[in-house]
Amino acid sequence: MGIEQRDKEGDLAALKRVAETFAVSVTPHLQAQIDPSDPKDPIARQFLPDAAELVTHEHERPDPIGDDAHSPVPGIVHRYPDRVLLKLVNVCPVYCRFCFRREMVGPGAKGLNAAQLDAAIGYIAEHPAIWEVILTGGDPLIASPRRLAQVIDRLNSISHVVVIRIHSRVPVVDPERISSELVAALKASTKTVWLLLHANHAREFVPEARAAIARLVDAGIPMLGQSVLLKGVNDSPAALADLFKAMIANRIKPHYLHHGDLARGTSHFRVSLEQGQALMRRLRGHYSGLLQPTYILDIPGGHGKVPVGPVYAEPAADGESWEVSDPWGGMHHYADPAAD
């Protein structure tokens, strides 16, 4: 047996171990977007298993953002006073190789049964401070339009809930699911419905995806974008600018750029905070303010999200004024006339 054949068999064995550890699924739509001749294809890197996922580190965690510590009943995560996550399902049409919930999603992972859903809705109804319910999972848009409509109808009956937010990859990974029935289910809500699309590269916005997004926005459903900063996918000013331009062109406002979470087997995607801040600084002043998301770190252990973007203003040495950096690195003195 030649060295090349042994290496190929070794690669296949490693990928099999990855698939036995973490869920793998790629929709036909995404398969058609992958360029097999490009070893750096950003679609393939996000969704195809990689032997690098078998490399784990001590600092990585099975629950990197601490969902479990804030879950009073199954399906609910209540980390912030005015909003909760409602994890309706634990499956997705695709599985991102950097997923922070990769330990709890995948084939065989059960969503909420009827009794658990009753308890989750009951929890929301019993806490009047909850202003916003975020449907997540898994990907909530993998649920049937009928089930989504039923859940939304139950949330409609809770007077203190004002906003229903839906986090989904579906419009860019399985756009045919954005059917007229699904759009009607979302539009029928008496609450304000927002949809946050997760996309990480401009190449995800192919014509089918753009059409799916248009079906949602044309129906009056506002959309925001969230992305993850990923080494080898979007860790350059040009890649981020192209991504955010694609969002804006499709009527999606970039909302969050997430620093990668410490999920097991994701070190090959990791970019340092310093690198992330430098990338955000390169966007400021060079590109429209519409393209500027908030760079966010979800503090490990369940301590919440905080902005970690570059700082442009710092107190001057006199303790009474400020030193302010412009977008191109020039420093300027600012005496705050409103200061005491």
Score class of each variant (00 low, 15 high):
Ile213Asp: 07
Trp131Asn: 15
Ser189Cys: 10
Gly106Trp: 11
Arg147Glu: 13
Arg203Pro: 02
Phe205Pro: 04
His160Tyr: 10
Ala211Lys: 15
Lys87Asn: 07
Pro145Tyr: 00
Arg146Thr: 11
Val172Tyr: 01
Pro140Asp: 08
Met223Tyr: 02
Leu141Tyr: 02
Pro207Thr: 12
Leu141Gly: 06
Val173Phe: 06
Asn113Gln: 08
Ala143Asn: 12
Trp131Val: 03
Gln150Leu: 05
Pro222His: 06
Leu86His: 08
Arg102Ser: 13
Pro140Glu: 08
Pro128Val: 12
Glu126Phe: 07
Ala185Asn: 03
Ala214Ser: 14
Leu196Glu: 08
Glu126Ala: 15
Val151Arg: 03
Pro207Arg: 11
Met223Phe: 02
Gly108Gln: 10
Thr192Phe: 14
Ser159Met: 09
Val162Ser: 14
Glu208Asn: 11
Gly111Arg: 02
Ser180Met: 07
Ala185Glu: 01
Asn90Ser: 15
Gly137Met: 04
Cys96Lys: 11
Leu117Gly: 02
Cys92Ala: 07
Pro128Gly: 14
Arg101Asn: 15
Ala119Lys: 15
Val94Asp: 10
Val151Met: 06
His198Asn: 14
Val89Cys: 10
Ile166Lys: 00
Ala219Tyr: 03
Ile166Phe: 02
Gln150Met: 12
Ile121Cys: 08
Ile164Tyr: 00
Pro171Thr: 13
Ala185Val: 12
Pro145Glu: 00
Gly138Leu: 03
Arg210Asn: 07
Ala184Asp: 06
Ser144Tyr: 04
Phe98Ala: 09
Ser159Gly: 10
Ser144Cys: 05
Ile178Arg: 08
His167Tyr: 09
Val173Asn: 05
Gly138Trp: 10
Ala120Asp: 01
Glu126His: 14
Leu155Cys: 11
Leu117Pro: 11
Asp118Asn: 13
Val172Lys: 08
Gly108Ala: 09
His198Met: 09
Val91Pro: 00
Glu181Pro: 02
Ile213Tyr: 08
Phe205His: 04
Arg154Thr: 07
Ala143His: 07
Ala185Tyr: 07
Val183Asp: 00
Val163Glu: 09
Ala219Val: 07
Val173Leu: 13
Gln150Phe: 09
Val91Ala: 09
Val91Asn: 09
Ser189Asn: 10
Lys187Trp: 07
Tyr95Val: 13
Ala129Pro: 02
Glu204Asn: 12
Ala209Trp: 11
Val193Ile: 14
Ile134Glu: 02
Ala188Leu: 03
Ser144Thr: 15
Phe100Val: 11
Val133Met: 02
Asn156Gly: 09
Leu85Thr: 04
Leu186Asp: 01
Gln150Tyr: 07
Asn113Val: 09
Pro140Trp: 04
Lys87Tyr: 05
Ile213Ser: 03
Leu141Asp: 05
Cys96Asn: 06
Glu204Trp: 06
Leu195Arg: 05
Cys92Phe: 04
Pro140Lys: 03
Ala120His: 05
Ser168Gly: 02
Phe100His: 15
Arg169Thr: 04
Ile164Arg: 03
Val151Leu: 04
Pro93Met: 11
Arg177Met: 08
Val89Glu: 08
Asn90Trp: 01
Ser159Val: 12
Thr192Tyr: 04
Ile164Gly: 04
Leu197Ala: 00
Ser168Leu: 02
Leu141Cys: 07
Gly220Glu: 09
Ile166Pro: 04
Lys191Tyr: 01
Pro222Leu: 05
Phe205Gly: 05
Asp174Val: 06
Ala184Tyr: 00
